[in-house]
Write a protein that binds this DNA or RNA. Structure first.
Lengths: 212, 212
DNA sequence: GCGTAACCCTACGCACGAGTAGGTATGCTC
DNA sequence: GAGCATACCTACTCGTGCGTAGGGTTACGC
């Protein structure tokens, strides 16, 4: 008997996205280990074997979440920071996009950074993404430096970039925990710390340890 | 029959430290969840019920590790940054002590930051410690500001401090993953990023978002 | 209108690891 | 050297949750 459609039996592509949505929510709420596949399935309005059929084991599912959220974030940033702008403008737009993304996807951020960092199986995945970020930032700095006719050793550049990325991640955490905070304002503050320091470096000013 | 002592039957205080040593090692190697109490016990050269008798459940054990390592770190920093020095000197000494500690206690650092951050039960514990760090840094900045006859809103100060702490943590992670890197040099680099930017802020220079 | 493939379910097996019960040996006090 | 506390062990119980076996139902091609 043909009852109401009962909105079931959706095509695979749709269900996979629903599952990923649910997974991101649950992982972010409980953490990787405390999250159970049963809860994810229930949250997605589907039964467990379906999750296994489509997305594989728990680890694979988590990696899939990581990938989707990470890609979205990188796209948000890349889309905002056009490569033909001056360095400070690029940095500003990149930061604004970044904090905007975190503010809008607090769940995704929690999955991405708070969970993935601790668990060895995913640390590599995460490190690769961070490396791409660092590379982008280092590229900006290097570009600005050459425009000034200066150069810095590649290692130093990378470490500075690493510090900036770290500071941003830290503020992003802060933002995720303060729902009332304004992403734009946070980006401005980060820009103040980052750019004022970086600009000094770009102009050849450096700090040297006291010798005694 | 009195055989060789077989180095057993140690007083509680000693065994507790051995257990904590083992726990820090195993937690840092495996992560909180993947670490088993059996492995910790074995690594400590003792049987599992002893661990339960002395340090309690797995969570309590982890908190104990967190406490010990955290206290050691805070002491290392506090001992180095005497409060009567000028701000830049304090910051420098604090950073040097911090990176020195991380370089020497990579295991402890991994437990502290990589594990504790992700798992909700310990996030609070960790946040409290970080809050103390942020407070110290914010205090330095504030002190330096007043010396210059300036003031900044407390929130901004805290956020800047938060960013600096985050950048340091990030570089500490980097340091923990690069055994060949020199803690002192890392501290110098961090000082460059942190102080050059902060000094600008202290002198009233700020960056403002473009208005268009 | 009938096969076949995609979608979806209920119900289980099974390993792993936290925590404990219950007992033994060794040193310390008096 | 009797009594007692402390250090220590082997050997279990038992919940939890991952992953699967095996079977049902709807759509779609032909």
């Amino acid at each position: 008997m043909s009852t109401v459609p009962a909105f079931k039996r959706l095509p695979r592509a749709v269900r996979e996205q629903q599952m990923l949505d649910a997974a991101v929510r649950v992982f972010s709420r409980r953490g990787f280990h405390a999250a159970s596949m049963d809860e994810i399935a229930e949250d997605a309005g589907i039964s467990k074997p379906m999750v296994y059929a489509y997305l594989g084991t728990k680890e694979e599912l988590f990696v899939a979440c990581l990938h989707r959220e990470g890609t979205r974030m990188m796209q948000a940033i890349a889309g905002a920071a056009a490569p033909d702008l001056p360095a400070d403008e690029r940095l500003w737009r990149g930061l604004r996009a970044f904090f905007g993304f975190v503010g809008a996807h607090r769940d995704g951020w929690a999955v991405l950074y708070r969970q993935a960092r601790g668990e060895q199986p995913f640390a590599g995945e995460l490190a690769a993404m961070r490396a791409r970020l660092v590379e982008v930032v280092a590229g900006m700095l290097d570009h600005a430096l050459r425009a000034e006719g200066r150069e810095i050793a590649a290692v130093d550049l990378e470490v500075v970039a690493y510090a900036l990325v770290g500071a941003s991640e830290s503020l992003a955490d802060w933002l995720a925990d303060h729902p009332e905070a304004d992403p734009e304002k946070t980006a401005t503050r980060m820009m103040n710390v980052a750019w004022l320091g970086a600009a000094q470096l770009l102009h050849g000013v450096t700090w040297r340890p006291p010798t005694h």
